[in-house]
Design a protein around this nucleic acid. Structure first.
Lengths: 231, 231
DNA sequence: CCAAAAGTGTTGGGACTACACCCATGA
DNA sequence: TCATGGGTGTAGTCCCAACACTTTTGG
């Protein structure tokens, strides 16, 4: 082994910024874990942990998510790698951050998990966080805002069948601005990526809305031919 | 030190995908280093190396660039972190990739550097690369193509004073499509981010073009007020 | 019948595309 | 005077923003 491989090595972790959308309040939620160990014992932190030698970074992120929150099949994407020298007070720790989008309708809050120390928080009412995790959350929010406009990832936060109003509210929340109902509908329907279902909403005390589904196959097809999703 | 900090640690490196624009051919160029050590001895690779305990990731990338290529003040941005288990045949090595944009007019090829094993290659005539560096280059190209449309980073590849034709050719090269001269000029000038200088091109055997400069301050100003650069 | 959200079209203005010719300069 | 790129305007089309009322349903 040449000399170069013998440099001292920083620790390597993954952290996950997990977003969900609350059905009642239609507010963005963030999954946090209460720390049991020092440093920052008792504080809230992002789910995450050390990368093992035999797993890729993405595998590590998925494993930590499963172990710490019970969350299993979600949209997961690498966000950014944070490596400032003093981000951990005790040792040099570099963390590869991922962000995940969870459908809270089909994975209800506190789904089968033994992690009783995991909880959802509204993103603009977060407790103080351990390490530089507030920064990771900020970066993730910025990325989400940017990406949601030109990739159809918003659907990951909704149930498979959703109403146009739900979709619109999602965009309003993530982008932080109101949208015109008629223009929104025209634009999104013209893309021809939503299939209208023969079902309607149930158990609402007003006119029931039509349900739609996102057509992923069609999107992949169109994308290949140079189509760009853009809201 | 708790148990968790004692996990075995992957090695951590940074690699830099350095793009430049050749003045003559107006072609995208990539900076490569010939490897002196195993593995992949004698092959070409991206400049990069191990992250030291006392430097941040970005500092490591800048240091490696300086040491291996003599390149100093450049646009540098984190690209992606590659951590597949077997990307290095001998050990687990995770690399944080950065990409850099270099102004080849003011940093001419082979500027003051002792790295005689560094060279520029045209991006679509690259030699076989060590490790998974071909993949890193692909990812960087995709990112550059995407980013150049909605952030004014293309200017990093040009001299401070440039002609509109140079700017247009740059976009044509990066985006891989021809653009209409009149429409391009209208659009870019309407943004009001270029200041027209009282100078013209020199030493050309045809009508000399006006020179322009990108107004960074104005861009920052406009961006704060919600303006979006978009070509 | 009331409350609450669903659903639906038109119009004016601005932006984008496509397109062709004259100009200035140096060789 | 020729070759080379520099520089300019218009017309048609499409997209976008702004805007208000009727419909359906359950309570």
């Amino acid at each position: 082994m040449p000399y170069t491989y013998e440099f001292p090595r920083p620790s390597l972790t993954v952290d996950c910024v997990v977003f969900g959308l609350d059905q009642q309040s239609m507010q963005l939620q963030l999954m946090l874990i209460e720390r049991k160990l020092t440093p920052f014992q008792g504080m809230w932190a992002l789910p995450g942990g050390f990368v093992r030698m035999e797993e890729s970074l993405e595998e590590a992120a998925l494993r930590e998510l499963r172990e710490e929150t019970g969350i299993d099949k979600v949209y997961l994407e690498q966000l950014y790698t944070f490596g400032d020298v003093n981000r951990d007070p005790r040792d040099r720790v570099v963390t590869v951050a991922y962000y995940a989008l969870v459908n809270l309708w089909e994975h209800p809050i506190f789904a089968a998990t033994d992690a009783s120390d995991a909880a959802w928080f509204t993103v603009n009412q977060l407790p103080p966080l351990a390490f530089d995790h507030e920064r990771l959350v900020q970066v993730a929010l910025t990325r989400l805002k940017g990406k949601v406009r030109y990739e159809p990832i918003g659907f990951e936060l909704l149930p498979k069948k959703f109403t146009l109003s739900q979709l619109q509210r999602l965009y309003e929340i993530v982008l932080g601005q109101e949208l015109d109902k008629r223009n929104f509908r025209k634009k999104i329907l013209k893309m021809d990526l939503l299939v209208q279902l023969d079902e309607t909403q149930k158990e609402v005390s007003h006119r029931a809305a039509r349900l739609y589904q996102f057509d992923e196959d069609k999107y992949r097809q169109l994308k290949k031919n140079g189509f760009n999703f853009e809201l």
